[in-house]
Design a protein around this nucleic acid. Structure first.
Length: 585
DNA sequence: GTAGGGTTAG
């Protein structure tokens, strides 16, 4: 005798054990209930698809008379299923069943749930598999969701879809989009979106301004970012610390410490106290720009004022001290850090290991290296590169090469820096063949060479008189769009002069001036000497003139040879120059 | 969000 639906429900409600068995419940509800209670059933289905691994295969055959493919049932299920991924799986399962035609309402509910759960990949999947279009509000949330996941290009596509439908985004979504673009470094999209934002008539808020300032800094437009800051400060808006910090590190990079200090003062006066990130950037850049002493002073000041440096700041400072070869001080900080309860991590170990390697204390380095491994930190490309660099710096390239050959056996990837380190090491020892081979290997490995791959080779080739090969490497480098590093043209000019090719040396020299580059003192000297030996006195005086203007003086022996050459001439310019030479200007 | 490995020559 079948029980009436209400009595079943009441039975379940009062019978604890029966309630615990979802199968029992569904069997009752689906076989014996005429007007199925969707709410009750979907609650039970939720439980089954959450707990039963192969429900797709068993559910239909277990309950043949229940119509799972009723769209209304899915909507009910969605209401009760907290895990959106189960709902998505159920939706796809339903879609594969005959007789189920998803309706826009359930699609939209599912899409919204996915977006709210920040499951943008799943949302993307759903969108791609159905012909439905979510409602504008969900699409707008979807934009924020995409941006957060770093899919900014897709977010822009959705934006244009909404724009086409005449929908304007809220300031929250605009900000989410800008923030997302910033995270993945797509400032190009930031400016496009900002333009659109203005056209929509949306008023930027303080958060927007913060992102714009950061974007300007990323684009190396620190000054513009600063101007924007000043402008909004007048309006009473104070952007968050992230914007200040970006500006500060931007000005640090440019060595504009006046602005840095001004910004720090603004932060304090606006109750935006500089945080660990702020000071860390300051210390970091001071050290990177060769002002490690000042970096250390800031660091010590902070401690005196009661700021507690964290492990990152300690690592930064230790790194700075190691850069200056103040290993003793670095080591002191190392122990101080441990005393404060921080355990050195992978970064700290690698920094300190390189510090020891650089000054040739390989025994100390090896002890730390072993300690690092014992603590469970794996050997990495970075740790290998550090050891190889140290060895190369001390002329132990064979040992460095030994490590290089060892890397693949340990499953450690060789990267561009690995190759560059060894190329430089071999070049320094005059082992051009080995370097050239490594350079070729780098290319065959599919790595993109950098300026640092070329520079040591160009330098060494010039020194041994192979200027033609050096020039061909130079062209290769330029063709790859790589900017030469400081001094590369100097090597070539000196190489040309050594070969007596004053004419081409002069061409390269003029190119340097055109590019507003300052040749080295040695380059000037060599060129003057070479030109005068070739009796190109006008040119040599011209170079001499630039040399003085660059603030250099002429080496004595070149001075004498020039004076000898000029002996017979008699013009005003020569006299002036000679006068300057003799005055030692 | 933060930190570590490759840049001259003196």
């Amino acid at each position: 005798m079948a029980r009436a639906p209400s009595s079943i429900l009441s039975f379940l409600r009062h019978n604890h054990r029966a309630r615990q068995n979802p199968n029992t419940q569904i069997r009752y509800l689906t076989t014996e209930t005429k007007d199925s209670d969707f709410t009750e059933i979907s609650q039970q289905i939720c439980k089954i698809i959450r707990t039963k691994p192969r429900w797709e295969q068993t559910l239909p055959s277990d309950y043949p008379s229940f119509n799972f493919t009723d769209p209304q049932f899915f909507t009910e299920l969605l209401k009760h299923q907290r895990n959106v991924f189960f709902s998505l799986r159920f939706f796809f399962w339903l879609s594969s069943q005959n007789g189920f035609s998803p309706n826009p309402v359930s699609f939209n509910a599912l899409f919204t749930a996915l977006v709210e759960a920040k499951a943008c990949n799943a949302a993307k999947l759903l969108l791609g598999h159905t012909g439905f279009s979510p409602d504008p509000a969900s699409l707008e949330s979807y934009i924020g969701c995409l941006c957060e996941g770093g899919y900014v290009q897709e977010a822009v596509d959705v934006f244009y879809r909404l724009k086409g439908a005449g929908v304007c985004l809220s300031i929250m979504t605009w900000n989410a989009a800008l923030s997302g673009c910033l995270k993945v470094g797509r400032t190009d999209i930031i400016w496009i979106l900002y333009q659109e934002m203005i056209e929509c008539g949306v008023v930027a808020d303080v958060e927007t301004v913060g992102y714009l300032i950061q974007a300007l800094c990323v684009d190396n437009n620190v000054l513009k970012g600063y101007e924007l800051l000043r402008q909004v400060l007048v309006d009473g808006l104070v952007p968050g610390n992230a914007a200040f910090n970006k500006l500060i590190s931007g000005f640090c990079k440019e060595k504009n410490y006046t602005r840095v200090s001004e910004l720090l003062h603004i932060m304090i006066s606006k109750n935006r106290g500089p945080d660990n990130y702020t000071y860390q950037e300051v210390i970091n850049w001071l050290c990177k720009k060769g002002k490690g002493r000042e970096g250390l002073r800031v660091f010590n000041d902070l401690k005196d004022r009661g700021y507690a440096p964290d492990i990152v700041m300690y690592t930064t400072m230790i790194h700075g001290l190691c850069t200056m070869d103040y290993i003793g001080e670095a080591r002191k900080l190392w122990f101080e850090m441990i005393e404060k309860g921080y355990r050195p991590n992978e970064y700290t170990y690698n920094t300190m290991i390189l510090g020891f390697c650089k000054i040739g204390s390989f025994e100390e380095a090896k002890i730390l290296y072993k300690e690092m491994c014992d603590r469970g930190y794996k050997e990495t490309t970075v740790s290998y590169n550090a050891m190889m660099r140290g060895l190369c710096l001390h002329g132990r390239t064979d040992e460095a090469y030994g490590l290089f050959t060892e890397m693949p056996h340990k499953g450690i990837v060789r990267d561009l820096i690995t190759y560059n380190t060894l190329i430089q090491g071999f070049c320094k020892e005059g082992k051009i063949v080995e370097s050239t081979n490594l350079f070729r290997e780098l290319l065959t490995q599919g790595l993109q060479p950098s300026t640092y791959s070329y520079t040591p080779l160009i330098e060494k080739l010039c020194q041994v008189g192979a200027v033609q090969e050096a020039k061909s490497l130079w062209n290769d480098m330029k063709n790859r769009g790589l900017e030469p590093t400081f001094g590369t043209q100097d090597y070539i000019i000196i190489g040309l002069c050594d070969q007596g090719d004053a004419a081409e040396g002069m061409e390269w020299f003029l190119d340097m001036l055109k590019s507003k580059l300052k040749p080295k003192r040695k380059t000037f000297g060599k060129l003057v000497e070479c030109l005068s030996q070739r009796d190109r006195l006008d040119d040599s005086l011209l170079v001499l003139d630039f040399m003085f203007r660059a603030g250099y003086t002429l080496e004595e022996h070149i001075c004498y040879s020039l004076v000898n050459k000029l002996g017979g001439e008699n013009n005003h310019f020569v006299e002036t120059c000679l006068g300057e030479i003799l005055e030692g200007k």
